[in-house]
Design a protein around this nucleic acid. Structure first.
Lengths: 146, 146
DNA sequence: AAAGCTACATTAGAGCTCTAATGCTCGCTA
DNA sequence: TAGCGAGCATTAGAGCTCTAATGTAGCTTT
């Protein structure tokens, strides 16, 4: 089966392009794509736990732990014990984190707008619909989807 | 800008699903997704250089170097100096590499077929077309595309 | 012939990602 | 009340990925 016939190849290429562009536009803000994603969801959910943040970002808790450690070392977030659940750490943006996030978000949204502008409303709907079907089929193919 | 409106989110989710499924189906063969991609292109291009293989796989030479080192340690490939260009290493599959590749390819193609079966010919064409436009726009947004 | 350009290979270092395993705390149940 | 299960955090280890820098070989240009 030639690579050009594999839908996966096209999907991968598109995601690679997305990632490369996001990496490039986030570089001036000093953030990686993963760090931006974490800060983005964090700004919408102050005090969220690392595990819950991991779920929102679609990664595992140890992965999020790595990302948060780097963000904390740079002073962009704080992690403090939860009042009641002593085992849970509440993660929050610092003032500097908010500033960096605002800066990065401007660049990231610019890319998203350029991407959206390429398509009509109908095309966008078609694309997201087809992608959703890809996700569904792929998850069905995975035994671990129980 | 909410995450649900970002085309990038849908793209990322689809690629994550693809990667997760491929990782799962390749696990019995003992290969990672990156290793499978390298072996796949290697089987079509015997004796190719690592740099050329990196281009085919859409990664950088150091990345391919890492992947090839692991494959070589497991005896699935050999790397020998080129006859004329002494600075180039020819990479080739070993017999065991070919066997593992055949095994892995069966599983990988099964996923691709399931994915293709979800769509009509027209839908497949639409999807690849839309994805190609995503790639084009994203590369235009990237200054480093010179 | 010497210089420079191009391409390949490699190392170093940072960061993301996963699985597996461990330890903790809370709340529920026997 | 004692234990048990669920959820959170973390460490360890393997692997992929990038940028930056270094070294080498071959070819081209002066």
């Amino acid at each position: 089966m030639p690579a050009s016939e594999r839908l996966g190849s096209h999907l991968k290429r598109a995601e690679q392009a997305l990632n490369a562009t996001k990496t490039a536009v986030l570089k001036p803000a000093g953030l990686t794509v993963a760090q931006y994603a974490a800060l983005l969801h964090l700004s919408d959910n102050p005090g969220i736990s690392a595990a819950a943040l991991a779920r929102l970002c679609g990664v595992t808790p140890p992965t999020m732990n790595t990302v948060l450690k780097n963000l904390q070392d740079r002073g962009l977030i704080t992690r403090s014990p939860h009042e009641w659940h002593r085992n849970v750490l509440e993660t929050r943006l610092t003032d500097e984190g908010r500033a960096v996030m605002t800066d990065a978000d401007t660049a990231a949204v610019r890319v998203e707008r350029a991407l959206a502008a390429e398509f009509t409303d109908a095309e966008r709907g078609t694309l997201t619909g087809l992608l959703a079907r890809c996700v569904r089929v792929l998850e069905e193919q995975r035994p671990g989807s129980s």
